[in-house]
């Protein structure tokens, strides 16, 4: 029996987590889509492509929505890991704490990737049917042409930080504190998603300052969530 990180067991755990609550994923995804899609379509019609970065911000808004969904749903899928009653099931699953930690993060990232792909497909379809305001495909946006490595890295980190922050928040036993942490993570993520584009007209080296902050925060939240999972009791 391998008591260290075992890749087969890890895959089993990811599969277990993905299929354990499909209904939560579907219902919350649909409710979020129904809430935000009209807003997105409306804002696109108002801003259109006359606004310099309109198409690009449409993309940012969509990805922001999808990633937020990907972050929020696991708090239902891993219902209160810190809960004395409900957390026992997860704690007693025969896998290492590292595998459990990594599996939650993987599920969150996987969900975000899958949902982003779906969101982009919908965006392309809306543009293809010439929905008012949707005159350009997202890759035709002027700003999209300017995407560079620091921006991609910054966006990935903007998501990874909250992933670990949410894992940590899910282990908290006090609901108020957990909710507060989730709101803070949300604000952080939105802020970080918007930060790199804001520097487009400014100094490019500012990217790296943002990225350095993101790296520091992500590493801290990774350590914090891992430490918490190691020391959780029921």
């Amino acid at each position: 029996m391998n008591n260290t990180f075992d890749i087969k067991r890890f895959c089993r755990l990811v599969w277990h987590d993905v299929r354990s609550c499909p209904k939560e994923y579907i219902t919350s995804g649909l409710s979020l889509a129904l809430t935000f899609s009209p807003l997105m379509v409306l804002s696109q019609q108002l801003l259109g492509n006359d606004y310099t970065h309109g198409t690009f911000y449409r993309l940012v808004l969509m990805i922001g929505m999808v990633t937020w969904w990907a972050l929020m749903v696991p708090s239902n899928v891993y219902p209160n890991m810190g809960n004395k009653k409900r957390g026992i099931y997860f704690a007693m699953l025969p896998a290492t704490k590292a595998e459990k930690h990594a599996s939650i993060a993987t599920v969150m990232v996987l969900m975000a990737v899958v949902l982003t792909a779906i969101g982009l497909t919908v965006d392309v379809l809306l543009t293809a049917v010439h929905l008012p305001g949707y005159t350009k495909y997202f890759w035709q946006s002027q700003t999209f042409q300017l995407i560079d490595l620091p921006m991609v890295v910054g966006s990935v980190l903007a998501f990874l930080g909250p992933v670990f922050g949410m894992i940590w928040a899910n282990t908290l036993t006090k609901n108020n504190l957990r909710l507060t942490m989730m709101v803070l993570m949300f604000l952080w993520m939105i802020g970080m998603l918007y930060a790199p584009p804001l520097f487009f007209d400014g100094k490019p080296q500012a990217y790296w300052i943002v990225i350095a902050v993101e790296v520091a925060v992500t590493l801290f939240l990774l350590w914090l969530s891992r430490w918490r999972m190691d020391h959780m009791t029921y």
Binding site: M1, I88, A91, M92, T96
Partner: peptide, 24 residues
Amino acid sequence: AHDRLPEMLQRIVILPDEVSLPDN
């Protein structure tokens, strides 16, 4: 015990007094 290694977790199971099950 508190290391909760997979080798131990495969050998032991607890049925608590109060359980919380997924309704669906």
